[in-house]
């Protein structure tokens, strides 16, 4: 019944890569398969950060800080390598680094 109106904001395009990435990489059930890869250890994460997370600072700037924290980003869990990488990316992008949060 409302499909005519919806057409105006349903893109009809193939899904945006960012929408697929944020689901397929981060969500869905995690099963112990035989092949174990640590998604945190690989460059894939930098892709994710480049695509999605450049906006985390932006969101904070916009006053929107109540969204669910991504454990990838909130650090902790001894993910020092990750934090280091994130800091480097932030420096490269000219963003304030998250180092002072720790």
């Amino acid at each position: 019944m409302s499909s005519r109106e919806l057409d105006s904001y349903r893109s009809g395009q193939p899904a945006q890569l960012a929408d697929v990435l944020e689901r397929v990489l981060d969500k869905g059930i995690v099963i112990a398969g035989d092949i174990k890869i640590n998604l945190l250890d690989i460059e894939l994460l930098t892709v994710k950060i480049r695509l999605l997370i450049a906006s985390a600072d932006k969101a904070r700037e916009m006053g929107i800080d109540w969204w669910q924290n991504d454990p990838f980003l909130s650090g902790g869990n001894g993910q020092n390598g990750l934090e280091e990488r994130l800091r480097k990316l932030e420096e490269k992008a000219g963003l304030p680094t998250s180092s002072e949060e720790g």
Binding site: K27, G28, V30, D34, I35
Partner: peptide
């Protein structure tokens, strides 16, 4: 990643789907 998604979308058109995370592989 798109292939993973499209396989699940095709399945979803017919039935309920519990999606697995990317790269769940068995030997």
């Amino acid at each position: 990643i798109r292939a993973h998604e499209q396989v699940l979308e095709a399945a979803l058109a017919r039935t309920a789907v519990v999606p697995c995370r990317f790269c769940t592989v068995y030997r």
